[in-house]
Amino acid sequence: MSSSTDWPLWEVFVRSRRGLSHTHAGSLHAPDAEMALRNARDLYTRRSEGVSIWVIPSTAITASSPDEKDSFFEPAGDKPYRHPTFYEIPDGVKHL
């Protein structure tokens, strides 16, 4: 019987105002996407916290593994020259 099983889990992303990107707000259960949107509105925007909501089935998200944290992000670790502060510029040079 359906009531003996949890509805699927959805991740909720809310755009708090125009010009900002959607940010993860939390998750909720709902039987389908339309109900997930309605539930998200009731749960995460009761005080006008959003102007747009995305809901995504939690199972559709692929995430990196925390166990690989070091090796996965390692390529960026030895490239400080990607930051502007890597370069020495003489005092007094402006707009650079």
């Binding site: 019987m1 359906s2 009531s3 099983t5 509805w7 039987p31 389908d32 339309e34 109900m35």
Partner: peptide
């Protein structure tokens, strides 16, 4: 809960 689940199942391909 049953009704919502049944509705979702019925419309599953689109949603």
């Amino acid at each position: 809960r049953d009704a919502a689940a049944a509705y979702a199942a019925k419309h599953a391909p689109a949603q």
